[in-house]
Structure formats: C-alpha cells, structure tokens
Design a protein around this nucleic acid. Structure first.
Lengths: 116, 116
DNA sequence: CTCATATTAAACCATTTTGTTTATAAAGTA
DNA sequence: TACTTTATAAACAAAATGGTTTAATATGAG
C-alpha cells in the first residue's frame, strides 16, 4: 500500500470529503467547499492530494470539476485492514488452540508431583 | 474514528511496526528497533505515538517493555473502511438497479418518436 | 553498591504540512 | 468583447513531524 494513501487519510478535512463522496456520487469542488470553514484554495489543495493518492477521480465539466470516490483504491485500502486483522487473528486462534490443548492435557494428567 | 489513529498510521515506520506485531504476538522495543536504521529513541517515540492512538498496548517486564497489537482498535479501524465501502457500494447498487430498470423499460417500449 | 542493559524524556533542528493571500486560467453569459 | 463563475497555481507563514544528541530512569547482575 502506497504511503500517500495513508498520508491523505491522515487529515480530518480530507476524510470528511471522502465521507461526502461515499454518500453523494459526485460533487463539484465548490459544493464540497460549502461544507468547510477554510478557503476554496485550501479545499482545492486537499482535492489535489486525494487525487494524487488516487482516492478520488475528477471529470471536467464546463468550468466545474466533478469529483467522485475511486472505488478501486478504497477497496485496496479495505483489503489492507482486513489482511492485517487476518494475520493477528489467525495467530491468536493458534494461540487459543494451543492453550486449549494444554488445558485438556492438564485435565487428563492433573497436577502430580510424582509424575515421571 | 479519532484522528490520532489515522495520523499514527500515516508513517511507514509505524506501519512496519504494526506489521511486525500482526505476525509476532509480542516484542520488546529493542527487538523492534533491530529492524530499523533509526535510533532506539526514534523507535521509542513511534511506539509512544502508536500507544497514544491505542493501536498497541505495553506491558512492563523487568527493564523491557513488551509491545503487542491492540486488537479492539484494529477492529474499529477495519470497521471504518468497511463502513465506507458499504456506503458507496450500496449507492452504486441503487444506481445500477435504476439503470437496469431504465434499460428494461427501453426494451419493452423501443425508441418510438410517436410515443405519447 | 556499582555497572550494564533497556528504554524514555528533553532540547534542538530540518523538513513537511496546512492554511492564507495574491495571481492566473478556463468557460459560460450579457 | 467584457464580466462573472469556478477552480487551480505560486509564494509565503505558522505549526506539526521525525530525526538526532544528550540526559535521566529503572531493573537485573556481579
């Protein structure tokens, strides 16, 4: 996973932009800007960063630029977090299985100082 | 989702630390440090940031601090990305359904200039 | 007690980030 | 053509980030 995807997601304004685009299909920069206190230039920069991370895509339409979410990058990102979880949960399952086996063994041969 | 989780994940060194802890159950700071070029102090700072984001947990053991992944935060993070995807995919499904309905309608009443 | 090991804290510095302001560009409208 | 709208680019300042070096702290070993 490229670093710029994570860096792009590190900013709360950019996450709010993605939030909007998760629900609204497509939005021009001006309409995105309406939801924030900062200047339109600041929003334009955020959009540029999201574009470079390929988290969104643009389409020119007259003077406007219509932005929408880039589903393939979002899917790749979801894969990353699922893969992470699979790795530690598999490991914990194994640990749990070992523990259960130990417990079972302990049950059949209860604590016995004379053993062996 | 707290911002410090995303900020913590924005650094490649910190993601590599999480990668290690996804596979290895628990590790002392020194052993984590071995995998990197930077100073132990730099790694200590990264661990502090991961701790503050609750992405990892520590346990003091003699002079060492054993670090492990915090599964609940990791699960919350996975939920965030899944929730994101569910929102845009539901929307796209609806869009697709509408398109199909339009297509079906077009098929039953083929292009016909005389129509109503 | 003294020394070595493991780790964090504090001060400091270079770089990056995020916002602002000013300027520029492209497209529709009177 | 001149004007307005929509948006980006460029220059700049303040704040945050990530690393280093120098101390400081805690714990086990001799």
């Amino acid at each position: 996973m490229p670093n710029d995807i994570f860096s792009a997601l590190a900013d709360p304004t950019r996450r709010r932009i993605l939030d909007m685009l998760a629900d609204i299909e497509e939005l021009p920069a001006s309409q995105i800007h309406e939801q924030f206190q900062v200047s339109p230039q600041a929003i334009s920069k955020h959009l540029k960063i999201l574009l470079e991370a390929k988290l969104i895509i643009v389409e020119k339409r007259a003077q406007q630029r219509m932005y929408r979410i880039n589903t393939s990058t979002m899917l790749a990102f979801e894969d990353w977090s699922r893969n992470m979880r699979q790795r530690w949960s598999r490991r914990l399952d194994t640990f749990e299985a070992v523990m259960k086996a130990e417990m079972a063994k302990a049950a059949t041969t209860p604590t016995d100082p004379e053993e062996s």
